[in-house]
């Protein structure tokens, strides 16, 4: 599986959790935000996005983001 560098623009994040849902569904076969390898926390106007150590930078989360809060760049070693 390709690996990506994942960049986060928290100012664009809406807290929709689509990234957490997709990640957990991919790796646990169930939608389960608490087991996602990306964790989004929104509190008022503040937002933080963290990745757990289990994250393998597959970029599934980025594919689900429609707000431009996540973006991915293919890592050098995977390029031909």
């Amino acid at each position: 599986m390709a690996k990506y560098r994942i960049d986060v623009a928290t100012e664009n994040c809406s807290g929709c959790s689509r990234c957490e849902l997709a990640c957990s569904y991919t790796y646990t076969k169930a939608f389960n935000p608490s087991r996602a390898r990306i964790q989004v926390k929104m509190s008022g106007a503040d937002c933080s996005v963290r990745f757990s150590e289990e994250c393998i930078e597959c970029g599934i989360c980025v594919d689900q983001c429609l707000y431009g809060a996540l973006s991915k760049t293919k890592k050098q070693e995977d390029q031909p």
Binding site: E11, C13, S14, G15, C16
Partner: peptide, 13 residues
């Protein structure tokens, strides 16, 4: 406007 907020799974927010 400080930020857009979305309910869970919403692509519009």
């Amino acid at each position: 406007k400080k930020r857009r907020a979305a309910c869970v799974s919403c692509p519009i927010g």
